[in-house]
Write a protein that binds this DNA or RNA. Structure first.
Length: 481
RNA sequence: GGCGACGUAGCCAAGGGGACCAAGGCAGCGGUCUGCAAAACCGCAAUUCGUGAGUUCGAAUCUCACCGUCGCCUCCA
């Protein structure tokens, strides 16, 4: 069975065939480290993390590169603001600090979302030399022109300009409504190199002191780490134009070879159906969301819609995801409890579920459909457990774990198996009370433990307990009131 | 203005010419289990896929029109 991916470049789903058999080179545009990550970032990196995981599941060796833009106008603007306020520090120093801070935070948040680390995270500032070389080459080949200390890319010289965003040059001109830099030959020409002001971060170049334009870094770094042509280039839909269009122009203008072969773009996160964005002020940072919600819940929420479609965010929808996740978790917990777990089985010989799961994922990474299979598996396991038919539970459960792993939704390992002594004692006390049919006391203890985040369940085989996350506690406490 | 996406039960969401009188989740309802719960199980719940017309033996799925929502064309995941 073959994997099909939707390619923005052609506007169709195509069979995925990597350049080199068994290997995939994949580049995803990373963040500009000038502010906190928000849900939109989470969506993109979770989506491409799942794609990476699935490619690995299929047996590919994935070389996954993601950059950090650690020098650009926004970071500099931020640094200026900071300096105005209090700091005596040098602007360049501040830029470095800001970049470092938000890079660190990026990793913290992605770790919580169980986004696996990619192969390498190159930074723009560490590849200035490569970018200068590229820019020099582009000038030599007639695509770049210098004005004062700036270098621009002349889009009119690249005949395929617009092929990714499926636009014609004339159409775009009509739409341009930003003030135009008069020195540019076309309003759509973009900067390869910008001269910088005295106090700004800068590097020596043939055009004087300056810094690279935004688009050139991705061309330079993807080429360096993945070669002049590679398999997958991905990012948010908002990067299609102009960022990715410009990358293509630069890279293909320079190498005369096809750049990325498959372009994948994720849809936006919306709030009340409007794009979440800084300018609208309707964005939620991951920090805020994680304060009240388990990151796994966020991840499940994000995967419940196909990655190319818009996904609308609300507390209500998070709660929905929360309950769904609890359904998976309680199933796995029960399997564990009955000692029916086994390591995730990988042999792909087809159960009907595995076939369905792979069909879903092969169809442009349809995680929503794949989740449907996961829940069918959960139902099957629960049903078997209920009937006491344990014969195939171990096998089915390992399949379930396997699929959860591909989506990055495996429960945290190392479930707590011990309770503080006083809490253990309370549970025993309740057992006694129940034996004596002192229901009042039993219920008091149960409620009290619940407030501690410990859920008791009386089963035919005896009482069980499990801890719940604070986020779950909050909700359950509300239910108690 | 140009280009594009979407509209499926109370909510989320998959499907994208016949196996669909439409998967799965949440919420809901009835039952089983329980001291009561919780969890779980069994069952019910869209005769219908924005509206209208058309193509077809057959349409949620294709075509056209209309209505509605959103996005890109400017930094943005």
């Amino acid at each position: 069975m073959s994997l099909k991916v939707y390619n923005t470049l052609t506007g169709t789903k195509e069979e995925f065939l990597p350049l080199v058999k068994g290997k995939v080179g994949m580049y995803v545009c990373g963040v500009t480290v000038y502010d906190e990550c928000h849900l939109g970032h989470a969506r993109a990196y979770v989506a491409f993390d799942v794609i990476r995981r699935y490619l690995e599941y299929k047996g590919y060796q994935v070389n996954y590169i993601q950059n950090f833009t650690d020098v650009d106008d926004k970071i500099i603007a931020r640094a200026r603001k900071m300096r105005e306020k209090s700091s005596q520090k040098d602007l360049k120093e501040l830029v470095r600090e800001i970049a470092e801070k938000y890079t660190r935070e990026y990793f913290e948040h992605m770790d919580k979302l169980t986004v696996k680390r990619v192969t390498q995270y190159p930074r723009a500032t560490e590849h200035i030399g490569e970018m200068i070389e590229l820019t020099k080459g582009l000038i030599r080949k007639g695509y770049g022109y210098q004005v004062d200390g700036d270098v621009f890319f002349e889009i009119g010289k690249f005949k395929d300009y617009g092929k990714l965003s499926q636009r014609k040059l004339e159409e775009m001109r009509a739409g341009v409504r930003v003030e135009v830099d008069e020195r540019k030959r076309s309003p759509l020409d973009f900067a390869l190199w910008k001269h910088s002001k005295e106090d700004e971060p800068s590097w020596d170049s043939p055009w004087g002191k300056g810094r690279p334009g935004w688009h050139i870094e991705c061309s330079a770094m993807s080429m360096k780490y993945l070669g002049e042509s590679f398999d997958i280039h991905a990012g948010g839909q908002d990067l299609i134009f102009p960022h990715h269009e410009n990358e293509i122009a630069q890279s293909e203008g320079y190498t005369k070879k096809p750049f990325a072969r498959y372009w994948l773009h994720n849809g936006f996160v919306t709030i009340n159906r409007e794009k979440m964005s800084k300018s609208l002020g309707n964005f939620f940072t991951l920090r805020e969301i994680f304060e009240k919600c388990n990151p796994r819940v966020v991840r499940l929420f994000l995967l419940s819609t196909h990655y190319r479609k818009p996904i609308d965010f609300s507390d209500d929808k998070l709660n929905n995801a929360r309950r769904s996740l609890e359904r998976i978790d309680s199933c796995l917990r029960e399997v564990e409890r009955r000692k029916l777990s086994a390591p995730a089985a990988r042999p792909c010989r087809g159960s009907i579920y595995r076939t369905r799961f792979e069909e879903a994922m092969d169809d442009d990474f349809n995680t929503a459909a794949a989740l449907g299979v996961i829940f069918d598996l959960v139902s099957k396991i629960n049903s078997r457990l209920d009937k006491g038919d344990l014969s195939s539970v171990t096998r089915v459960a390992s399949e379930l774990r396997d699929f959860c792993g591909v989506l990055g939704l495996s429960p945290e390992s190392g479930q707590e198996t011990r309770l503080e002594e006083d809490l253990m004692k309370l549970i025993q006390e309740r057992e006694e009370a129940r034996r004596e049919k002192d229901w009042g006391r039993a219920d008091t203890i149960r409620d009290r433990l619940r407030k501690e985040g410990i859920i008791l369940e009386d089963r035919p085989q005896g009482t069980t307990w499990h801890k719940i996350r604070r986020s779950f506690c909050l909700e359950n406490n509300l239910l108690l009131l």
